[in-house]
């Protein structure tokens, strides 16, 4: 069963030209199409990895899922019901069910709060528990994430290492007893030697408490390690989706192939393949209707520039790529 469904999800940002340009040159607004026609599901208890370069729309997607931004088009359904237009208690309940873990453990904790207060802030804001009940839960969750409360509860964030801070971030998400976690690059600011510990913690907690996760990262080697399925995005469009191993070992889309080939490998004898792409990453400002990777794609023809294939969500385990030319390109 899918806990979350994104159906034709789109988000456009208007860029208004300056007053003079509008008045005298009759310039119209242009639009950044940050996310365009995204179809994907998150299944119960799974980790969906979302990967892509800057401007691919992964952060915008997460912001919309956490109901901090309204989509321009399409729908977000949580447990079968649309979350758009939720208000009051229903919105609070939804926010409680979907918790975020942020990228920067140095920035995401209020420097003037003590650790216990940071973790207790969510329940306090929503009035979930108070007094001893709240204290008990804060202590329990701090212990669970490997921060003994006797040592950590009264400290301030600046007294903690990066790894410890990220554990605080995880604790303050988990105390809300969420049904889904959105983790936005939770490891990228941490030292290599402690990343695996945080990753283990997230996996253990998922196994224990049974929630679904969206794990956003630009690092495909980590995603390959942590995610059940991977979604590859490029300039707001979904390029490929499928089981993690499949996508990484056997990429179909020319973009995915380039991306995976370009990931550096910790082996001095290996060299990355020269990626088969042209030009530079642009911005999705007033993009043409077709595939946004087409201008950089070695296989693209006229049809790619006008028509885009949207992925479907019939079978979540299906490995599919949004490309006309799959047969032509072949595997490998």
């Amino acid at each position: 069963m899918a806990i979350l469904e994104l159906a034709n999800l789109s988000r456009h940002f208007e860029i208004r030209p300056g007053l003079l340009d509008r008045a005298f040159k009759g310039k119209a607004s242009s639009y950044i199409k940050a996310v365009q026609g995204l179809n994907v599901t998150v299944e119960d208890n799974e980790i969906l990895g979302i990967a892509g370069e800057s401007g691919c729309g992964k952060s915008t997607t997460c912001t919309m899922i956490s109901a901090l931004m309204e989509p321009s088009d399409g729908d977000i359904r949580f447990k079968g019901r649309s979350i758009l237009g939720l208000k009051g208690k229903a919105l609070k309940d939804y926010r409680r069910s979907v918790q975020m873990i942020f990228q920067d453990p140095y920035e995401s904790l209020n420097p003037r709060f003590r650790i216990a207060d940071i973790v207790a802030e969510g329940p306090r804001a929503l009035g979930l528990w108070r007094g001893e009940e709240l204290d008990r839960r804060v202590h329990a969750i701090l212990s669970a994430v490997g921060l003994p409360p006797a040592k950590y509860a009264e400290r301030f964030p600046h007294e903690l290492s990066g790894g410890e801070r990220q554990r605080v971030g995880i604790a303050s998400a988990l105390i809300m007893e969420p049904e889904m976690i959105i983790a936005d690059e939770p490891l990228s600011m941490l030292d290599v030697s402690i990343r695996a510990g945080i990753l283990d913690l997230m996996r253990d907690m998922q196994a224990q408490k049974g929630f679904a996760s969206i794990y956003v990262s630009h690092d495909l080697s980590i995603l390959g390690n942590v995610a059940d399925r991977i979604l590859i995005m490029y300039l707001g469009q979904a390029m490929e989706v499928g089981p993690a191993r499949e996508v990484i070992l056997n990429p179909k889309h020319p973009y995915t192939k380039a991306l995976i080939g370009a990931v550096p490998v910790p082996d001095p004898r290996s060299r990355r393949a020269v990626p088969n792409v042209r030009g530079d990453l642009s911005k999705p400002i007033d993009p043409p209707p077709g595939c946004r990777f087409a201008p950089r794609c070695p296989h693209a023809d006229e049809s790619c520039k006008t028509k885009f294939i949207a992925l479907d969500t019939q079978d979540p385990q299906k490995h599919q790529a949004a490309c006309h030319k799959l047969a032509e390109i072949g595997h490998g």
Partner: peptide, 12 residues
């Protein structure tokens, strides 16, 4: 700053 986004995401 991100801790404000975090507070909002937690429902404040």
């Amino acid at each position: 700053r991100q801790f404000i986004a975090m507070a909002r995401a937690r429902g404040a």
